[in-house]
Design a protein around this nucleic acid. Structure first.
Lengths: 140, 140
DNA sequence: GAGATAACCC
DNA sequence: GGGTTATCTC
């Protein structure tokens, strides 16, 4: 959200990771198999549809920033229920991503750590749907 | 960085690190008769719609078990994308739940140890990250 | 806690 | 690269 840019004194020092921030997306030529790209979040999935609508109404506007602004604005105005399908899709993508990461871990170099993968948000599907303890059905 | 988190949400083995990341949902007295896991909220939301459809097609069938059984089979046959809207609704309920938890936390002066609301994303606890110097920078 | 990254498209 | 936001990784 509102970026909390403390001050402009934040120097963007290069990451010590060696790997530059954004580079080598899927270049297999490198010694390491590129790790799977992150799954699109709900907002991006929403943008896929939103760009279509936007492009139809503004076929001349090729600016990405324009549609991005409009999309962001729209997104914030949407109720959670309207975002639901996109969130659901994002969850689906995340499940697939997790599988890919699992393979990636095996492929890279599993140091045989006690198999303690950081348990990500386990809101995957029905197995771990958010359990709310309210028996009352909110008659929406 | 090669170390990446994979979600092994399948194996629900208890974490040996002691600190259960999950909220203690009334973990019962250990040896207590394991309370049957309540069905996921998303499924219940789905059933609300399913009962309507079912009642229309089988107006004479008053059997709750019939619709429940049919609903269960239907739910399992549904793809995740189809479940999405229901999952989204469940998320919505979770948001409300999180708000309640937030108020609860304020009230209870809890330490930000495990009473954290929605942010259930478990990070790598004590993961000794081996500083692999994969410095094979792409020579471009 | 904060920087980074994901798609889009020209 | 720009511009959004939610998620991720460190």
């Amino acid at each position: 959200m509102t970026r909390v840019s403390a001050s402009s004194s934040r120097t963007l020092k290069p990451r010590k990771d060696g790997k530059s921030i954004s580079k080598k997306k899927g270049v297999a030529s490198s010694s390491g198999p590129a790790r799977p790209k992150r799954p699109p979040i709900a907002f991006l999935l929403f943008m896929e549809d939103f760009r279509k609508s936007y492009k139809e109404e503004h076929p001349e506007n090729k600016s990405v920033s324009a549609v991005a602004k409009a999309g962001g604005e729209r997104w914030k105005s949407m109720s959670l229920a309207e975002k639901s399908p996109y969130i659901g899709k994002a969850v689906e993508r995340k499940v697939d991503y997790d599988k890919a990461m699992e393979s990636y871990n095996e492929n890279e170099n599993v140091k045989e750590d006690e198999a303690e993968p950081a348990a990500s948000s386990e809101k995957s599907t029905s197995e771990s749907t958010p359990e709310v303890e309210d028996d009352e059905e909110d008659s929406s």
